[in-house]
Write a protein that binds this DNA or RNA. Structure first.
Lengths: 342, 342
DNA sequence: TCGTTGTCATCAATCGATTGCAATATACCC
DNA sequence: GGGTATATTGCAATCGATTGATGACAACGA
């Protein structure tokens, strides 16, 4: 294992001062002879010199490092978001600390402190979806010495930049589409109890129904956690209704539903139509592919970085910026068009 | 946005020296009166003081930060590995930089430099699977001033701790199992052209055949990249053979195969048996579930951290450690037992 | 009164880089 | 040769924390 080489050592070897070496290696405009420049660069390369960013950060008062907290890196959506964001950060010379909290506000707080203490220049927060006690977290966020951007979801009532897809709109679009295809008895399978985004999607679902004068029937609203087995369990009841279509408010929920449908020998869209959310890769396996509300994590990442970038450059306004993105309905083949019979 | 509070400021406010404040806040054994201790802690809390880890790192000569480079964070296996590793690191007070390279040796090198420059205390490398020109990367790794642990795969011939599952053994176990179930014409669908792990799995497959005197038939060996559409494409040819079983050397490859099977109306295991690798979550959707070779990323993470931990504590031997883990065959329902007819 | 012991707290150097200002050396002009 | 301009390079302070060495002061015993 090689040793760490410092500026001073390089300076010693070339017989110049550390300052000169620093100047040259950073390509600062300065008057160092061409001869010495070359020498310095050569010696640095030969010794595998890598500047100590830690030391540099200390004096420069910036680390060119950002942080990200997601609830669960193993979820496809967050992994993709993290990947896009990391790439985007790197393009601008920032490194990204990706951390995964498990979803509780306490963990979020702990991670946030870790990030701040490590000197990140800013943080992206994907927090605030669960209904846990977030007072300490709010308090911390509001006293943050660095810019923060809330992504995909937010802690309500906190003055802070936000970038997210319109979840209510997503629920609305999905339901609206089903209505347009002639469906009247539309069930939904959502995580409204424990998730703000789920609750919003449910609100969109209800708005679409209300808008065309369809009744909001509590017997058609089903609850599921955001993972496959939970949705699988809940699906039996869904299928016992007279619904001709289901709005599944997440990809995992849709997958649980599909598994149940498959087992019961029901076909899509022949027996029942389905609109999903966040097409997951698994989706390619199904014939027909699922019609779904799509949120491109890359777009989310791009806008989030944009906000952050502005703040870092001091170009952010005094007030928090709020970016709301519209999701997209991707029509594939899981919805049957019903002939109207009224 | 609050300001950053420093040790000195706290010291000023309580009317003591920075040293005293440092001593107290770090719970160092020292003689500071109970009274002042309390005062310091209170003032620090009131001002939301967070120690600057950057400054601390500089003098302590360690950042309690580690780095990870994976080829693609959006892949389930790596996401899971990253998640487990991050959690494990945190348990020991380390933060983890998770970076995703895209798989080329050049990107890997760039990321590695980034990590080193940022002062990580060690790096986990999931690199070396693609056949790109890795000379610069090897050079860099061999001159690294910090410990490195290669995970899941390795750059051949580099003296460096390694932790990985036995890919050859995995291929062997899968094939061996199919043979034991009475299969004689066994196809395989692997990524041998562009992946070392794929090549090893293929070697295992061939060893199993050879061991029982079955012919190694090039017409039964098919090539596929590690993503679904590629496997889907390749599968048509696989299904045109007289094979009664297929060994699919990755989860995505299996999924592509399944999609094709599904479309052709073939049933598993009735028409053809399948052994997969790395059960992905999507797998729960299929009836029957896929029999597969499993590699638990959590186990990989645990051992990788173990190696790193030893090195960091200076307890690592002079020679590189090599941990080879055995994968596990998880029997589910995608393999038909053939009655022997010889 | 002086020395000793013990308690509480501070000094000052250090980590590895950056950078404004000062210093030296060389060239050039008259 | 003296003076000025210009080309090169070095000094030393600084970032925010850590820590071994050291100081100040009170109490106590002889």
């Amino acid at each position: 294992m090689a040793n760490k080489v410092t500026l001073k050592q390089i300076a010693q070897e070339v017989g110049l001062s550390p300052s000169s070496v620093s100047l040259v290696l950073n390509n600062r405009p300065c008057r160092i002879s061409e001869e010495n420049r070359k020498l310095i660069k050569e010696v640095a390369a030969r010794n595998h010199y890598v500047p100590n960013q830690i030391a540099r950060s200390l004096v420069m008062r910036e680390s060119r490092t950002l942080g990200l907290i997601v609830p669960n890196i193993e979820s496809r959506f967050f992994a993709s978001l993290a990947g896009s964001l990391e790439k985007r950060c790197r393009e601008d010379g920032y490194a990204l600390f990706i951390t995964s909290s498990g979803g509780s506000a306490d963990d979020d707080l702990e991670l946030l402190r870790q990030l701040v203490t490590r000197g990140v220049d800013g943080v992206f927060l994907v927090v605030g979806d669960e209904f846990s006690d977030d007072r300490a977290l709010r308090e911390e966020v509001s006293h943050l010495p660095i810019p923060a951007v809330m992504v995909d979801r937010a802690i309500e009532g906190l003055e802070c930049d936000k970038v997210m897809f319109d979840h209510e709109m997503g629920g609305y679009m999905a339901t609206r589409y089903l209505i347009e295809q002639g469906h009247r008895r539309i069930a939904c399978l959502v995580n409204a109890r424990r998730s703000n985004t789920g609750r919003k999607r449910l609100a969109g679902y209800e708005r679409a129904l209300r808008e065309v004068g369809l009744p909001i029937d509590a017997r058609l609203e089903f609850e599921s956690e955001y993972y496959i087995p939970s949705a699988y369990e809940a699906s039996e009841a869904v299928l016992a209704t007279d619904a001709t279509a289901v709005f599944a408010s997440s990809d995992n929920i849709a997958l649980g539903l599909l598994k149940r449908l498959h087992e019961m020998g029901k076909s899509i869209p022949g027996d029942i139509s389905v609109v999903s959310y966040d097409n997951s890769a698994a989706d390619v396996l199904f014939e027909p592919a699922l019609t779904a509300i799509e949120q491109d994590p890359g777009v989310l990442a791009e806008h989030a970085f944009g906000c952050m970038s502005k703040r870092l450059a001091g170009r952010g306004g005094r007030r928090a910026e709020e970016v709301v993105l519209e999701p997209e309905l991707i029509v594939k083949g899981s919805v049957l068009e019903l002939t109207k019979h009224n």
